[in-house]
Amino acid sequence: MKSVSTLAEFAARGEQAELLFWVGCAGSFDDRARKVTKAITLILDAAGIRYGVLGTEENCTGDPARRAGNEFLFQMQAVNNIQVLNGYGVKKIVTACPHCFNTLRNEYPELGGQYDVIHHSTLLQQLIDEGKIRLQEGGTFKGKKITYHDSCYLGRANSIYEAPRAVLQALDAELFEMKRSRAKGLCCGAGGAQMFKEPEKGNKDINLERTEEALATGSGTIAVACPFCMTMLRDGVKAKEKEQEVQVVDIAELVAASLKAS
């Protein structure tokens, strides 16, 4: 397996990466999300893309600080990141986190960071469409029931509904929609910095409500495209004691598992 190069290493070799993979804090530190990170590196390698990461030079985009209300802290993070990104002359960024994606794509430009930012669901769809990655025919997911949970920051926030579904379709999986999906999709409960605090008083946790909708589709797989949704829905599935029958996986993991050996 190829080792992942940092942009610093690219620069030291006098080279330029064609794509920056923005790993994000969850993808770097969270044990479960790290598996998604690895799946993405596998796919990028399989597609033969010369990509780099920032490694320890990457900082949080500042999204949770901004949503919680601390604009100073957000901008401190953002301006620092932009200096690093512009220093390496980064043009194109892919990330597996819809929150990073939204911030990098929509909120960095007015602070001086102009990049072509795509979410990994869009990249996966492109790679499949362009034939840059090939999936096993009659793969593991053929005919399996899968439901897809829309991340708010991908869906409503940035109108990306079809790319992740197209990826699942390419796996020959049978896609079952939840009661609330696409523009009406229900939040997993983590957005707006809720990930970093206990929920307010109520009569139910949002992730349980959403998990029930996902389980109601009878799917054995709940596909997600966001590390926070992953945590919330896994907790939900655990709380419902369904972790034996139902797995929560990122679309990148599904693709990585179906890659055709080249």
Binding site: F29, G69, F196
Partner: peptide
């Protein structure tokens, strides 16, 4: 808990309290 998250961001550049030097350990 949000104030704690702010503090983590200021000191470790991540909303969680992890050392920034461990950020690339996944590799």
């Amino acid at each position: 808990s949000w104030n704690a998250m702010y503090q983590n961001l200021e000191t470790s550049f991540s909303p969680w309290k992890f050392s920034p030097t461990d950020r690339f350990n996944w590799n």
